[in-house]
């Protein structure tokens, strides 16, 4: 918007904005002020063209890269999902229609993966965002060394998935892991974290929570600092304590930010992949012997790259995409309602 506006305003503003000390600009302004026909109109057309085109040129790299590495693969995946394709015979495609999709709908592995994705998503996202909100609230007070605290919060986010998961896998290891060692002091029998149904999901979620809480807390913190302080002052004058201020001032003002983090976390949860894969170790794409923590992302990887049924894997990918679209629509409707109610 700004750039096309600037383009229209070009001749006047350049004349104004270029007093003597800018020789190049001044000459340009002069040229435009007294139009000697031929060259000037050619020139001004060139300028106008430059003004109109250069914004597009500037944003083009994104779209070129997006087209080449996102859009084309996306459409190609859709094409694959309608065919029987093996990884070992990519050129040999036979039309399957919606066969891959109906296969998924009748596959218990798919429903299991969907359910796991949902349950891991819930038990990782909800505590994560609540904790982030609480941490941001604490950090919003005047603290000694607040920058240091903020940096500390962001360190898990800066850690690689692989490194974090490796450490967590050792912590959760059945035999000699630290968590089972601690549990033993409160008289709990060692838990086989990786193979138990709820234990494995809990363990995977804890990695996600550990990595992302600080990131979300910083986003909340930034939004909190944008809340005008007179709101708090007047709330304090009305006799609101800290807790009430948090409930009646902070949270309502943060609504758009909370919505944003919910959307981002939901997308992240739907695509959850690295943590469960590495947590599983060898043949981690199975997500446990009973697929107890196999997410949709893992199921897709297992089908496509380990087993080699690329057609089916593509169908899973598109199903994930459709699920995200549904989530986005629900989110949009929700946020519209939230915006209406003050």
């Amino acid at each position: 918007m700004t750039s096309s506006h600037e383009a229209l305003a070009h001749p006047a503003s350049s004349a104004e904005a270029a007093p003597g000390n800018q020789p190049g600009a001044a000459r340009g302004a002069h040229g435009r002020g007294t139009p000697p026909k031929g060259t000037a109109s050619w020139r001004s057309r060139l300028y106008r063209w430059d003004m109109k085109a250069s914004p597009y040129v500037l944003i083009a790299p994104f779209f070129v890269v997006f087209g080449a590495f996102s859009l084309v693969p996306l459409l190609y995946t859709a094409w694959y999902s309608l065919h029987h394709v093996q990884l070992s015979a990519l050129d040999h495609q036979t039309w399957a229609g919606l066969g891959n999709y109906t296969n998924l709908l009748s596959s218990e592995f798919f429903w299991n993966a969907l359910q796991n994705t949902f349950s891991i998503g819930v038990i990782s996202t909800v505590p994560q965002l609540l904790a982030a909100l609480w941490l941001a609230h604490l950090l919003n007070y005047r603290l000694r060394g607040s920058t240091a605290w903020r940096v500390v919060m962001l360190t898990p986010y800066a850690t690689s998935v692989a490194a974090a998961t490796l450490v967590f896998t050792l912590l959760y290891s059945w035999d000699g892991g630290m968590i089972n060692w601690l549990l033993h002091f409160v008289g709990v029998d060692p838990v086989n974290w990786r193979e138990s149904d709820w234990g494995s999901q809990f363990a995977v979620s804890s990695i996600v929570i550990w990595r992302w809480t600080g990131y979300n807390a910083l986003i909340y913190l930034a939004a909190m600092q944008a809340i005008p302080s007179d709101l708090y002052e007047s709330a304090a004058l009305d006799g609101a304590g800290r807790r009430q201020q948090f409930r009646h001032v902070t949270v309502p003002m943060l609504r758009p930010t909370i919505l944003f983090t919910v959307i981002v976390s939901t997308i992240g949860a739907t695509q959850l992949f690295g943590e469960p894969l590495l947590f599983g170790g060898v043949s981690g794409s199975k997500g446990g012997s009973e697929h107890q923590y196999q997410t949709l992302g893992l199921y897709m990887y297992d089908q496509g790259w380990i087993i080699g049924n690329l057609g089916k894997a593509s169908a899973i990918a598109w199903s994930m995409f459709l699920i995200l679209v549904i989530v986005a629509v629900v989110n949009m409707l929700l946020s519209r309602r939230l915006r209406k109610s003050p």
Binding site: S3, E6, A9, H10, S13, S14, A17, A18, Q22, G24, A25, G28, Y47, D50, M51, S54
Partner: peptide, 8 residues
């Protein structure tokens, strides 16, 4: 000023 840098 702004536009001249933009042009370049």
């Amino acid at each position: 000023m702004r536009t001249s840098t933009r042009r370049s």
